[in-house]
Amino acid sequence: MSFASPMIQEQANMPEPAAAAAKVAARNVNVYYGEKHALKDVSVDIPVRAVTSFIGPSGCGKSTFLRCINRMNDTIPICRVTGDITIDGKDIYDSRLDVVLLRARVGMVFQKPNPFPKSIYENVAYGPRLHGMARSKTELDEIVVNSLKRASLFEEVKDRLQESGTGLSGGQQQRLCIARAIAVSPEVILMDEPCSALDPIATAKIEELIDELRSNFTIVIVTHSMQQAARVSQRTAFFHLGSLVEEGSTEQIFTNPKDKRTQDYITGRFG
């Protein structure tokens, strides 16, 4: 296979005008795990109230980039991030910015469902309670019920809100995690392979849910499934070996990729 010349790569990295206003903008982001250069000079705009999917072969740095957006990488001592990432034009690596509030504004759903080993209610209520979002018990109840409803889980669990969240099925647990994430009213939701542990039916449910949530949130999803990316996202970014190879509207990426590597990847020729 032929590698694009640095010139072309430079061009590919230039973000083309996004469909809507950019919610998150990354410029020349580099990430190092100790000596390892995991993410190289990534620049991308993530549009507001749309779903952006990150695709690329395993180990190419999708999760790493995703975790830069809510500064989850801060918890890894050896991890070092350079470059700028802004949300609504504000630098999130600004030392005056409170990282805890940032994470409230940028919610995250992980690859493996990870509900707290507490009741379903407590799982959802934890975030709002932490941030003092509810003044009364009824208000908190309302937030919990609304979040569960928006995660289309409420009908299934309404009679057992006090039972343990870990007692749910995998798909239900993942929807509970989504409910937990949206309960704190984030602006951006990051999802790292949210369906990788789920069967097709649960996956379909989550995808439906993502489509619904799009109208209110800015969503970034990492996925290994081309079909999923094509189904749920409006924009797609392709990563390879730590670099962002190509970014554009999902339709364009899947029908008319500019880069040979993108084409090879989406047609299944490598990866």
């Binding site: 994470r103 990870n114 080993p117 932490l130």
Partner: peptide
């Protein structure tokens, strides 16, 4: 205690200390 629990707490905007005292330590 699996790190995913701590990450979950951090993900909804708990501070490091809150994540530990609310979730990790009880577990």
């Amino acid at each position: 205690v699996p790190p995913s629990i701590k990450e979950a707490a951090l993900g909804v905007g708990a501070s490091h200390q809150q994540a530990i005292f609310h979730h990790v330590l009880p577990l």
